[in-house]
């Protein structure tokens, strides 16, 4: 079995296992929704080398787009989801187009600035977005003959979409396009020198990432029946980035791990200890210092430590602190 099929199988296992181990369908849905957002973020961070603080924009706008469509029109659910994906893609194309004019720190600052800008835009246009209160009472219509009212029914719907999108993202990652992104991350100057219009590749990566993130945002709004202001907040961008980094940027399944960990641990800890974010900060420091391959890297090491695990290969026994994402190639 090749790596891509293995990772898809792992993703499917997660989707099947969540209902077995979790009591709340809402929380389980949240895991998969953020897994999509983190995987989309990974396409930019892990594959293209772009640290984007703009992911919350696409997530939040996806929420609003779906909410507004379902509240004000009689369009079916599927179309509302498509519209939010398109919104995400279009805005991401614009944000990407402007931000990639600068590199490194200045690129990051531009995405951060856009993030603030869209937050205030949403806050200011209260008539449309509901401002502080959010866009309330978003209905969750049936999809064809299937009612999605019950939380596990909705979970099933989210899980199917999650697996479809995961497979699509895998396809993107392994395409000539995805492999060119890896080259851009590795050595942008050379990629241009051998003929690739690097900016077009980065913008396309942004568009795809924005579409998936927008869709995730829509699913989130449908999940809780509200498109809250917090979905477009800068903290949303931050959370999506943290999930992606904790999971590991080497492959797409790592993002599923990161999202699962983040959502479940936040849920557990926030009920026992209100200052649990401190712990998360500590964990992030540990990841940055000692385990740049994230939870996925940890998992790999555990599998290798098992007596019947794979024989440890030279590649994985040499921990290269500068190239934590060298795993990204074969997905």
């Amino acid at each position: 079995m090749n790596r891509a099929s293995l990772h898809f199988l792992l993703a499917a296992l997660v989707a099947i296992a969540l209902p077995l181990f979790m009591r709340s369908g809402t929380l389980a849905s949240e895991v998969l929704i953020f897994a999509m957002a983190a995987a989309a973020c990974n396409l930019l961070l892990g594959y293209t080398g772009l640290l984007s603080f703009g992911q919350g924009i696409f997530f939040g706008l996806g929420s609003y787009a779906a909410g507004l469509t379902l509240l004000h029109t009689s369009l079916p659910l599927a179309l509302a989801l498509v519209l939010s994906a398109i919104t995400g893609a279009v805005v991401a194309t614009g944000v990407g187009w402007l931000s990639i004019r600068r590199q490194g720190v200045y690129f990051v600052m531009l995405t951060l600035a856009f993030s603030q800008f869209f937050y205030f835009l949403a806050y200011t246009f209260k008539d449309i977005t509901g401002g502080d209160n959010g866009l309330l009472n978003i209905p969750r219509p049936a999809i064809g003959p299937f009612s999605l009212g019950e939380s596990w029914a909705y979970y099933a719907f989210v899980a199917v979409l999650f697996l479809l999108l995961f497979a699509a993202l895998q396809r993107v990652a392994s395409s000539t396009f995805g492999r060119t992104l890896l080259a851009v991350r590795d050595n942008e100057e050379r990629a241009r020198a051998i003929g690739f219009p690097v900016r077009n590749f980065k913008i396309t990566a942004f568009a795809i990432s924005g579409a998936v993130t927008g869709l995730a945002g829509a699913l989130h709004a449908l999940l809780i029946g509200v498109a809250p202001l917090s979905n477009i907040d800068y903290h949303m961008s931050e959370s999506i980035l943290i999930m992606t980094i904790i999971g590991g940027t080497g492959n797409l399944f790592a993002s599923v791990l990161g999202a699962g960990f983040y959502v479940i641990v936040s849920d557990l800890l926030s009920s026992i200890w209100p200052r649990w974010l401190l712990l998360l900060g500590g964990l992030l420091i540990v990841v940055a210092l000692f385990m740049q391959k994230g939870l996925w890297g940890l998992l790999e090491r555990l599998v290798e430590a098992l007596p019947m695990g794979r024989k440890s290969s030279i590649n994985s026994s040499i921990e290269s602190p500068i190239q934590p994402e060298s795993e990204g190639r074969g997905i």
């Binding site: 396009f177 060119t180 890896l182 590795d186 990629a191």
Partner: peptide
């Protein structure tokens, strides 16, 4: 491309003659 293997380095260089083909995700 330091992290990519030799074959992939050369494949990319060859693909660069028709770069837009590689834009299809």
């Amino acid at each position: 491309f330091q992290n990519l293997n030799v074959r992939e380095n050369l494949r990319l260089a060859a693909q660069g003659r028709n770069p837009l083909q590689a834009l299809a995700p």
